[in-house]
Design a protein around this nucleic acid. Structure first.
Lengths: 222, 222
DNA sequence: TAATATGAAAATTGTAACATAATTCAAAAG
DNA sequence: CTTTTGAATTATGTTACAATTTTCATATTA
């Protein structure tokens, strides 16, 4: 209704103008100009779009996902900028050191005496080489069980380490996060679980894989 | 019906002359029949579809996701793999050093970039509850492999926690230091390895066992 | 009679097309 | 100089359409 009304109004006014201005076109504003008109990429997606056919039941999910992707990309961009391979020395103001006992030394001695303290260790320093490029993730699933990565573990992920063959990586494959061992072979790039119940995943050319970082440690809490 | 059709067929040559078939094309095969044509739901999605406009860069991901959704029900294992991360409980500590990302699985369409910074976490605070009573040990051997404790791991041991049934403990049994799961049964006290290649150890009355502490975490570095 | 081939009907599917809607900016108006 | 105007241009949701696929009663063949 509204739309129809607008159309009608526009048509009317044009007719009126036409009548008053004796057959002269009234285009004395706007018009053909270089740079006129809406800018490309000014839509809500910021890029060209395509129409695609999807099952009815999935429409809402996809729309929701696209919304979240939009917001998330901004945050991810910020993260990438922020942790772009800059080495930063961790402040040692709150340095916590713990006694590290050597298994060999204490073997045969049933009491924990201070004499057997081999060294002291700060867990942050031990586990975090590059503070600005490191983040933590919690694992769900057992696909890396043989590598000692268990369900519920906290992974220490270093974004400044170059992903290479044999490294355990956090990979976003077609938008889904997984932890797998990266295998770069002549047969292609593979994401290999360390659990016989799971098959290796071939990263196809058309797939979109983003490596978030390399896993440097895993922490299991009991 | 059958008979009528047959009659029609037989009168084929006369169809042009006699208008028995009223507006029927002179089709002698196929044609309007109850149950003719493609069945509903026979498409690749098995349900009605809609067209929607999406950003070009997301087309491949959505298609890939739809593919996996389709055959997703078949492999539960694969499904679990895809949601390899869960939300981690935020630490209630004020002090923060490392970002802890969480991966929320939203309505089956996970978005790795959505609200992924859950909190920040200090590893020392996360792993050490009682600093004065905590020490670290380096593991030798694989007797606790199934518990995720590997050779070379760093164990976080808390001496202030009361050893009890089911806890993983550092025990000095007759002068030999081991890490085992403590099992207190009616049959006696046992030190149980988590590796089928090692037998449980019965702690005899006359044996001298000293529990050094309870293992609260294990750290594997790659 | 049984098995195979045929082709129209019905549904699917990818993409083009269309109608608004939203945005932009130079020129006109104040 | 500031505000208003409106054509130009792109974006967006939906419909339309042509090509494809599937189905099955019937015709044809064996």
């Amino acid at each position: 209704m509204d739309k129809l009304d607008k159309m009608g109004k526009r048509g009317e006014s044009q007719e009126a103008e036409h009548a008053e201005n004796k057959t002269r076109k009234q285009t004395n504003r706007g018009g053909v100009r270089a740079g006129a008109g809406r800018k490309k990429g000014s839509g809500k997606f910021g890029e060209p779009t395509k129409v695609m056919r999807v099952p009815e039941s999935k429409v809402a999910q996809i729309q929701s996902w696209l919304e979240r992707q939009k917001k998330g990309e901004q945050k991810l961009a910020g993260l990438l900028e922020h942790s772009a391979f800059k080495v930063h020395q961790p402040a040692n103001d709150e340095r916590v050191t713990l006694p590290l006992y050597s298994h060999k030394v204490v073997a045969g001695f049933p009491s924990p005496a201070d004499d057997y303290i081999e060294t002291t260790l700060d867990l942050n320093e031990k586990l975090v080489r590059n503070k600005e490029a490191t983040f933590l993730l919690v694992v769900e699933g057992d696909s890396m069980q043989k590598a000692g990565i268990q369900d519920g573990d906290i992974l220490v992920v270093d974004r400044s380490i170059e992903p290479s063959d044999g490294k355990i990586v956090i990979a976003a494959l077609d938008g889904e996060l997984t932890v797998k061992r990266l295998s770069v072979k002549s047969t292609g790039t593979w994401l290999v679980p360390e659990n016989d119940n799971y098959p290796p995943i071939l990263v196809r050319e058309e797939a979109e894989m983003v490596i978030w970082g390399v896993v440097t440690a895993t922490i299991s809490q009991f």
